[in-house]
Design a protein around this nucleic acid. Structure first.
Ligand SMILES: [Mn+2]
Ligand SMILES: [Mn+2]
Ligand SMILES: [Zn+2]
Ligand SMILES: [Zn+2]
Lengths: 143, 143
DNA sequence: CTTGTATTGAAAATCATTTTCAATTAAAAT
DNA sequence: ATTTTAATTGAAAATGATTTTCAATACAAG
């Protein structure tokens, strides 16, 4: 899908879910849908204001909340506790984050189900969710 | 090891590393070394003040920093971004956290190396670290 | 175009964490 | 035991991320 189509698609999904398509939301969606790395709310705010100067940081937070609800973006947890937001990809995916530049790659194919089942057996817990992130250095940062 | 020995051991390790053994540190170590679930700084502060009423929250943060440096406690990352602290166990361990009551279990035996190597091949990244947490409901919370 | 309501953003509030700094205290040196 | 000295402490203020409040605004339905 073209990025322009992706943007249009996200806006349609917002509308189809009963939300309104507004200028600030347009600016935020444009940024997040086309970004190649995970963005922090402040980054989105700063870049977004170039497109739509009256944008408020509160609206950034609120819009990201909506987009997360709709499964269009996913939260990236940083070791320091802050959050970044990234376009959600299809299927079951996890993240590989460059500790130098913040670039993010997705990967699939982890099969944690056997592990989860073994842990359930051992502990009596009912495992509901798992959280897996890899950290490393991207090829571009090897120089 | 008995819990009293564990406490003594931690205090000795602090001293051996050139740190002083103080009343506030004693109170914090007592709590964290014997806790059965991950504690937040505020929880440690509140409980700690019963033992040593002049305890300051700043000291809780600073002491946890020291204990983490020494490898005695480990940080637990919550979905909301806040941190809790838990006695560090031996060897390569991961966490299973009860989403209801906060109880924490450790588990070992994940073999993520094949996955990490496959992802390295696919992306060109050099994987340095992984971060795995399971979330679920503990047996006691099934009622 | 009018209307009703979702949405917005400025400002203030909240919450976790860090910094500053003068007073205190543990432990090494007398 | 007393002195000395640097590490440690905690109150208060600063910081940074996120949330709440609320009156003004703008989308989209009619
Ligand atoms: Mn997975
Ligand atoms: Mn592991
Ligand atoms: Zn990089
Ligand atoms: Zn539980």
């Amino acid at each position: 899908m073209q990025t322009s189509d992706l943007i249009k698609n996200w806006l349609e999904q917002l509308q189809a879910s009963g939300y309104r398509v507004t200028e600030p939301r347009r600016a935020i969606v444009e940024l997040v849908a086309t970004a190649d790395h995970a963005l922090s709310p402040i980054e989105i705010y700063d870049s977004g204001r170039r497109e739509y100067p009256r944008l408020g940081l509160v609206t950034v937070y609120r819009t990201l909340e909506r987009l997360e609800e709709l499964g269009l973006v996913q939260r990236v947890h940083s070791p320091d506790g802050c959050h970044r937001y990234l376009r959600a990809f299809e299927g079951h995916q996890h993240l590989l984050i460059c500790t130098r530049c913040g670039r993010v790659e997705m990967f699939a194919g982890d099969d944690l189900d056997p592990l989860a089942r073994r842990v359930e057996q051992a502990t009596g817990y009912q495992v509901e969710e798992h959280w897996l992130q890899l950290f490393g250095v991207c090829p571009l940062c090897h120089a």
